[in-house]
Design a protein around this nucleic acid. Structure first.
Ligand SMILES: [Mn+2]
Ligand SMILES: [Mn+2]
Ligand SMILES: [Zn+2]
Ligand SMILES: [Zn+2]
Lengths: 144, 144
DNA sequence: CGTTAATTTGTATTTATTACAAACAAGTTT
DNA sequence: AAACTTGTTTGTAATAAATACAAATTAACG
């Protein structure tokens, strides 16, 4: 399992013990590209680790966030979501379906850094520019 | 009270009954420029309306959002926040202090619409572009 | 005023998340 | 390999934020 090896490496680099729970959570989060909630992850990871505790999901996600291995993302809804992609990127988001997709755009990023290098904001030092592109996915047939 | 008149006008335009609770919530939300949470609003509005129910805050905010009179905003933390400003704008946000400030920038907006008019995203139609500028407010003396 | 429908309130409930301590297991030491 | 140590997981209980619901209240209208 190539993927598993990568995860194990990441875990030990972060100084964390390699547990089946952690491996499974990271694996699942990488697989689900939908920015799942803790509950969604709990359901999914439980398939791999029967008897898994919900608390472990929360613990694990918190730990991963602390170590910078994953990121939190928020939508307009009242649940925290998680993102396996830690590299800088933006999000496409449809408020109606609460669906969120990743958006990478280097040209955009360069344009924005150039812009804010020129136009400083008084009293604020920017460390990261996140775009949330609101709109709708041209969902096939809007039915369903 | 000029301000109160404006609020009353907005309420009736939205087809809502003018209640002291609604007026006080809107008034307070406009005054607090900090994107308060429902709980913060509850505390603040309670000063004006003693015996106010927390439920009323939630009801009122939901109604206002539905009518497009206010907006929800989210930070990395686990609470919903509300914004009296419905005009298009962006946010400066410091994750450490969980502080959020408004950011208006027409030049930026024009640059971005021009950019995305040219560079279409397959399968997604943009309706709004929201920037979250992460960073830190040059807080005087970082102490406290 | 009196009527009516919308709104508010209080209470109970749900959902998401966190706190905590005992049980357990990963990684290290011998 | 067995014992040790410490971090991790688990289950349960608690909290926080938000929602459901029905009775009490009140704004708006005639
Ligand atoms: Mn806003
Ligand atoms: Mn919550
Ligand atoms: Zn993402
Ligand atoms: Zn704002």
């Amino acid at each position: 399992m190539e993927i598993t090896q990568g995860i194990i490496k990441k875990l030990s680099e972060a100084g964390l013990k390699i547990t089946p729970q952690r491996v499974a959570v990271m694996q699942t989060l990488c697989k689900l590209r939908m920015h799942p909630t803790a509950e969604e992850l709990f359901a999914e990871v439980s398939k791999i680790i029967p008897g898994l505790s919900a608390t472990t999901i929360y613990n694990t996600l918190d730990t991963f966030v602390e170590k910078g291995m994953i990121k939190r993302v928020k939508t307009d809804a009242d649940v925290m979501r998680y993102d396996a992609i830690t590299e800088h990127h933006h999000h496409l988001y449809c408020a109606v379906s609460d669906r969120m997709e990743d958006y990478f755009d280097n040209e955009l990023d360069e344009m924005l850094s150039a812009y804010f290098e020129r136009k400083q904001i008084k009293g604020f030092r920017i460390s990261d520019i996140r775009l949330q592109l609101m709109g709708d996915f041209n969902e096939r047939k809007q039915t369903q």
